[in-house]
């Protein structure tokens, strides 16, 4: 009797845990199927492929272990593409912020037509990187492009932007900064809403000029947003592909061959799937590290508030 009661008690408890689990699985099934098939499985598969030598159909031939990682780390070409990726990040991320900051401050001014100006300032979020790249390729055209005409107007000799190894990466960076401006301004505008008006008023009454108020109140209060944009911008820079593929194909003289473009070439042009996977896994580790840093700081910000 007691045994029976205990058993039914147990089965009731089991049902209480299993019931929700079954219905949760039903609700989660569609999303889980997609995320497992197209995110988790490929991630593990990338690691697997990176440990094997593969043929041109990506079939594993023999196990190499960390051999390809060693090959990668001793390849000057890999370090070169990593260096170019860092350089590209350095050209795009800080400048994007330095340009976006005054634009956001302007968009925050209490003036007539503010909504219109804000819309204009963030409109590049609607433009794709591919389209931005095509337009800027035309603007950077050597003799007929508008950028060289602007240089001519201020008395500077024309530059062979995308054909000159010295200028190709800066040119691609300019296009990238323009395309990213909308997103940076958008986040800074959102961050500016959180800057306390009372503090700014108090500072003005105390005789602070606008630069002092900006330096000592606005900037510190925006620091979480700025940090967020720095990290997200860096991740975006490491993921960049379309602008290189369209504007320079990695050239001239491989001066713009950033990491994702190198992966693309190795996998889909040279059919070295395993070596490309090795680079993809490396890219993943870099992005992972950056994201974790960001999470850590976002968490800290939440604690502060």
């Amino acid at each position: 009797m007691l045994q029976n009661q205990r058993n039914s008690e147990k089965s009731k408890q089991l049902r209480r845990t299993l019931g929700p689990l079954v219905s949760a699985s039903l609700y989660l099934a569609p999303a889980a199927l997609i995320l497992i098939t197209f995110v988790y499985y490929p991630l593990l598969r990338s690691v697997y492929l990176s440990l094997y030598e593969t043929d041109f159909l990506a079939r594993p031939i023999f196990f190499t272990g960390i051999g390809q990682y060693q090959e990668l780390l001793s390849s000057p070409r890999f370090w070169d593409s990593l260096r170019i990726t860092f350089l590209f990040t350095l050209y795009t991320v800080p400048f994007a912020l330095v340009i976006a900051m005054p634009v956001a401050l302007l968009g925050n001014l209490p003036v007539r037509g503010r909504t219109f100006y804000r819309t204009t300032f963030i409109c590049t979020i609607a433009v794709s990187t591919a389209i931005a790249s095509v337009v800027w390729t035309w603007m950077f055209a050597p003799t007929t492009g508008v950028m060289n005409d602007l240089l001519r107007l201020v008395g500077i000799a024309p530059i062979r932007w995308l054909q000159d190894p010295r200028f190709a990466l800066p040119a691609v960076s300019i296009a990238t900064i323009w395309k990213g401006l909308g997103l940076n301004v958008l986040f800074l505008l959102a961050g500016l809403q959180g800057v306390s008006d009372e503090l700014l008023d108090a500072a003005r009454i105390d005789g602070a000029n606008s630069w002092q108020s900006f330096r000592n109140i606005t900037l510190p209060m925006l620091s979480p947003t700025i940090f967020f944009l720095l990290v997200v911008g860096t991740i975006e820079a490491f993921r960049s592909f379309a602008q290189i593929h369209i504007m320079t194909q990695g050239g001239p003289l491989r001066s713009t061959s950033i990491l994702v473009y190198a992966i693309y070439r190795d996998a889909f042009i040279n059919f070295r799937f395993s070596y490309a996977s090795t680079q993809a896994v490396t890219l993943f580790l870099i992005i992972l590290a950056l994201t974790l840093i960001q999470f850590r700081v976002v968490e800290r910000r939440v604690h502060y508030q």
Partner: peptide, 28 residues
């Protein structure tokens, strides 16, 4: 739905945001 392992599974879902498409493009 209050099911066991909810927090962990949600974390697995969030983690997919860190896996950018460039990393998984070859196996995909």
């Amino acid at each position: 739905v209050d099911f066991i392992g909810k927090k962990f599974i949600f974390l697995l879902v969030l983690a997919t945001m860190m896996v950018s498409g460039e990393v998984t493009v070859i196996p995909n």
